[in-house]
């Protein structure tokens, strides 16, 4: 779920924008020039993947996949997520332009954490990769939902109800994300394992 313009108070909006700008600047500095096209590819393919809607019982959910982005890009995943969210706002108005900082934190921090976690969990076998993918996929969504709820709660007591509903709405996404991430990671492990090195060369 994306936060639209005007929901968060200006202090929270500006603070999260500052943190996001710092995060993007930091990951830009670490990324080498020839890695930029790879980040653009990951960003665009996950942008496209986020348009896939899957049925969950009577409703449908769309994928976010912060866990897989983290696994693929490692430390550069924050940059990728911020870029993807900017494009979503630019093209579709999913998430407001002024709320971009908050949205980038909400999805980018889980991706970063999942990237680290994935590298330590993934081991060398297919099964381990599947488990790591499921854990990161589920955890990424869970963290994103928690950050969303925390941001909404920061907006004041009037938003506690919205925050609770947002958390509840993420429960189906959590299961779908864990499943799809596990299968996407095992697919990549079988087909192109070098991509899962998380942006680290030589692994």
């Amino acid at each position: 779920m994306h936060i639209s313009d005007g929901v968060l108070p200006m202090s929270v909006t500006l603070a999260s924008a500052v943190v996001t700008v710092a995060g993007v600047a930091l990951s830009l500095r670490q990324v080498r020039n020839e890695e930029l096209p790879k980040i653009a590819v990951v960003t665009s393919s996950f942008f496209v993947a986020s348009l896939v809607h899957l049925p969950f019982g009577p409703t449908s959910v769309h994928l976010i996949l912060p866990g897989v982005v983290g696994a693929l890009l490692g430390p550069a995943s924050f940059l990728s997520i911020a870029l993807g969210l900017f494009l979503q706002s630019l093209l579709f108005q999913f998430g407001g332009l002024t709320a971009l900082g908050a949205n980038a934190l909400m999805m980018g921090l889980p991706a970063l954490l999942c990237g680290l976690l994935f590298q330590s969990l993934r081991g060398t076998t297919l099964v381990r990769h599947g488990i790591a993918g499921a854990v990161c996929g589920g955890l990424g969504t869970l963290l994103a939902a928690l950050i969303l709820a925390a941001l909404l709660a920061l907006a004041g007591e009037d938003f506690f109800g919205v925050a609770k509903i947002a958390l509840l709405a993420h429960i189906p996404v959590f299961f779908v994300e864990a499943g799809v991430s596990a299968f996407a990671v095992t697919f990549l492990f079988r087909v192109k394992p070098e991509l899962l090195a998380g942006g680290r060369p030589g692994r």
Binding site: S45, P55, G57, V68, V176, G179, A184, L188
Partner: peptide, 26 residues
């Protein structure tokens, strides 16, 4: 598409393939 493991598997492979193809193409 349905709410089951088969869908998750198909969509996971689908996304993986989309990514590999995109990566090689670009």
């Amino acid at each position: 598409p349905a709410t089951d493991l088969a869908t998750a598997s198909a969509v996971g492979n689908f996304l993986g393939m989309l990514f590999v193809r995109s990566f090689e193409r670009t």
